[in-house]
Nucleic acid binder design. Structure first.
Lengths: 187, 187
DNA sequence: CTGCTTTTTGAACAGTCATTCAAACAATGA
DNA sequence: TCATTGTTTGAATGACTGTTCAAAAAGCAG
């Protein structure tokens, strides 16, 4: 088989959901082989190590998440409407019985204590997302106000990403968002 | 040695910080023996399994956290002042270089996907804390309003517990709290 | 001192971990 | 056809996993 019989991206997609659900430490190579259909050798041939594989999966997740933000912003009338829809999507996700929050946040929490490269990467991506929100909010508000609102938004997103684990929390979350971020209903 | 040469609570305190920092999966029995000074046999004699040990550590952490809330409320003029101080303490904690968030939240995120007993326990404790806040807030507000404010408070706490991992976030967090929870400055 | 009970010890268990590698394999270009 | 190149295989590596257990040790009661 001189030509590889799998697509790098397909493998990554399978690996993302495994790592996302279980975290780094709890996901074994054995499980990865099962999820991808690849043998250990192939995995190590294509991706140098478990850590590198995780990093690439996380990067792909981050890219997709950022892409989704831009997409929403392009599809909606104004920035606040876009943000409202993004938040509504998060609430919708939290209704799923196998809800597993945000891959970046989970990685940050799991690997923070070890000064890990993966932690730093996740942390950087999250702060990058905040910057993106800041830029969009600058369309409606002053730079200073946009920065403050973006920090509020990220805090609320982090909050509902955790609150979403509580049973039957969707309605409460929706009301909480409206109470915490009243400025979303301006414009 | 017919009398045990360690205190159950001291062992738990050591174990709490290990599990808190590293999480369940990444903390090995070998590390636990190092952190506690106990040999494997003693650990399994005193605590049935790694899972039971973790559960007991988590319970002790939760009890201490809840105790700290009641203490703050007893020490302050009114409920809102107490909450403000609790939040200020969280901000202070986030300044530490080895900040590791909230043990309950980390456990919930790490172990959610497996329908784990430990996840359910952490989740229950967090919703219990929300209930406690609701009761305190009932002193100042109607039952309905207190419930809504407690949900907002929990969301913000969850949020800053994650936001706290970002470098130099303390000032931003303080401003964000004031913006998100303006009612804390009433009374 | 002699049994009895409780605790400690640390080696040993079977299983799993991440990773490696030589060999088998398949496609390409000459 | 044949050597070359890149890919897949799957067993094997040594280290580490959570857990067990028989033996040793130490206190107590008689």
């Amino acid at each position: 088989m001189a030509k590889k019989n799998y697509q790098r991206e397909d493998v990554l997609d399978n690996v993302i959901s495994l790592f996302w659900q279980q975290g780094y430490a709890a996901s074994s190579i054995q499980q990865i082989t099962k999820a991808t259909g690849l043998k250990p050798g192939s995995i190590y041939h294509e991706f140098e190590s478990k850590e590198k594989l995780f990093q690439e999966a996380l990067a792909r997740y981050a890219t997709a998440s950022i892409g989704a933000i831009h997409q929403k912003m392009a599809d909606t009338e104004n920035v606040n409407e876009g943000i409202k829809q993004i938040l509504a999507d998060l609430v919708e996700q939290s209704k799923s019985c196998d809800y597993c929050g945000c891959f970046l946040i989970k990685t940050q929490l799991e690997l923070a204590s070890q000064g890990n490269t993966l932690y730093q990467f996740a942390s950087m991506q999250l702060s990058n997302i905040e910057k993106i929100y800041t830029e969009y909010l600058s369309r409606l508000y002053s730079n200073e106000q946009a920065k403050a609102y973006a920090a509020q938004l990220m805090t609320v997103i982090f909050g509902i990403r955790t609150y979403g684990y509580q049973a039957d929390s969707a309605n409460t979350i929706t009301q909480t968002i409206n109470a915490l971020l009243p400025w979303l209903n301006e414009h």
